[in-house]
């Protein structure tokens, strides 16, 4: 070692430090992923002793299903995008509004912050079950309240028109606290002097929100948007635990791509098709991540 230059020594050390992590990533993540790609080229049944190579047949099937609006796969993709497009903006807007409110008040702000954050530190499976019980068509909390006020009871999770929104509400509810904390941190970064300057210029609160707060929160917004988008794209736990027998119903109105992957792989034993679905999802997430990197590296 002593004959190496300082720089060479550092290179050697870098490799030594990375030895265990890189082995881990290659062994536990990369190789299994490659095998998933490989599986997607086969008619792959986990119970079978030998698997038949079918080329791109699974992808052809996937493409056909995507074009057929009646297929469950098509519905799964549509629903997944719905979760993203409905859930993500609602989550961000609500969290930002609450963060602004918390910024306004002085007393009890710590308490409120803690209350909003609590759902985030609880178990998703438990939360999904609790909400399933809250949504119960007759004796769940919401319907008890509705009858109490003389309003008609709602089916919530049992209706193909309401189920997706009902599940989205739970995801928003659980993730709200996290987004609030991030927004609060972002708001702290905005120098007080900016607002004072705006006030002197005669700008009201509404104007200073649009002209100062929002532009300065841009990085935070993008960061959260991407984070939430990816987590909505991979939605699974809530749906499997909140629908009857985890089927993503009623009428496939709540099913997601990951739930399809799981069902195809483990209920229908069609691993090849399930892998093709995963590859498609991988592609979507990849594109979003690239867009994310582009946005994040830009300066505001």
């Amino acid at each position: 070692m002593s004959r190496l230059t300082i720089r060479q020594r550092q290179v050697v050390w870098a490799y030594i430090f990375l030895l265990v992590p890189m082995t881990f990533f290659i062994l536990i993540r990369i190789i299994p992923t490659l095998s998933a790609f490989n599986i997607s080229l086969h008619d792959w049944n986990p119970l079978a002793a030998e698997q038949t190579f079918v080329g791109l047949e699974n992808y052809r099937q996937l493409w056909e299903d995507l074009l057929n609006p009646r297929s469950v796969t098509h519905k799964a993709f549509v629903n997944t995008f719905k979760y993203v497009l409905i859930g993500m903006p609602i989550q961000l807007v609500t969290a930002l509004a609450i963060a602004l409110l918390l910024n306004e008040i002085t007393r009890m702000s710590t308490l409120f912050r803690a209350i909003f954050f609590i759902p985030f530190v609880t178990s998703t499976v438990a939360i999904a079950w609790v909400w399933r019980w809250l949504y119960q068509p007759q004796y769940g909390f919401f319907n008890v309240m509705l009858s109490f006020f003389g309003l008609p009871q709602q089916p919530f999770l049992k209706s193909p028109n309401q189920a997706l929104y009902s599940i989205t509400a739970v995801v928003v509810w659980q993730g709200l606290g996290f987004a609030i904390i991030i927004f609060l941190a972002g708001l702290k970064q905005v120098p007080e002097t900016f607002y004072e300057a705006a006030k002197i210029d005669g700008a009201n609160r509404w104007q200073s929100f649009w002209r100062i707060t929002l532009p300065l929160l841009n990085t935070t917004l993008v960061y959260l948007a991407v984070l939430q988008t990816i987590s909505f794209l991979r939605m699974f736990d809530y749906v499997i635990n909140m629908t009857t027998q985890g089927d993503g119903g009623p009428l496939a109105s709540t099913t997601t791509v990951t739930l399809r992957v799981y069902r195809e792989a483990f209920s229908s034993f069609d691993m090849g098709y399930a892998s093709a679905l995963t590859v498609a999802l991988f592609g979507i997430i990849l594109v979003i991540t690239i867009v994310q990197l582009k946005f994040l590296s830009r300066d505001y």
């Binding site: 992590p21 990533f25 993540r29 990369i30 190789i31 299994p32 992923t33 095998s35 998933a36 599986i39 986990p46 991979r234 699974f236 990951t258 992957v261 799981y262 792989a265 691993m271 399930a274 892998s275 995963t278 999802l281 991988f282 997430i285 990849l286 991540t289």
Partner: peptide
């Protein structure tokens, strides 16, 4: 390392 972020874990269960 970053690319592994995008892999849905459901697919890695069997391997």
């Amino acid at each position: 390392i970053l690319s592994t972020l995008m892999i849905p874990t459901e697919m890695l269960l069997i391997p």
